[in-house]
Design a protein around this nucleic acid. Sequence first.
DNA 1: GCCAACGTTGGC
DNA 2: GCCAACGTTGGC
Length: 155
Amino acid sequence: MRHWLMKSEPSECSIDDLAAAPGRTVPWIGVRNYQARNFMRDEMSIGDGVLFYHSSCPEPGIAGLAEVASTPYPDASQFDPKSPYFDAKSKPDAPRWQHVDVKLARKTRLLSLAEMRAAPSLATMRVLERGNRLSITTVSADEWRAVLALLKKPA
DNA sequence: GCCAACGTTGGC
DNA sequence: GCCAACGTTGGC
């Protein structure tokens, strides 16, 4: 089993939105970056662990634990002209964008970006690398364990 | 709102 | 295939 960190803007889908979704599961639509798509399409497996990260908000950080809950399938929003994720160049017989479903495991306390940066055990995390903008990044088993350990402590 | 960093586009 | 211009991300 592998581990991932997936960014979501709380204004789009927060940890509470995920908790309130049917089956506590949402389709991870809207990814329009090839590297992130390839992670979902080629490398994820059902049951993989996901760190659910709030980005572009007053308190960025890890807000919960989730898991990959489906195999990849085409992102319907790419064919919807009314969607902000519409992609005119993607054809239904050759969908460009695919995604997986993500299911909540449990909401956690917020492990803030500042706390993540201050933790030596997380120094290798891809999401913390300078200039990183990728919305899905890999998480090593050691990093996953380190995050769980930090979550057990009070903020 | 600013701006650094990065990915994508498109002319050549 | 190069690379400048442009658009987006995302923390601050």
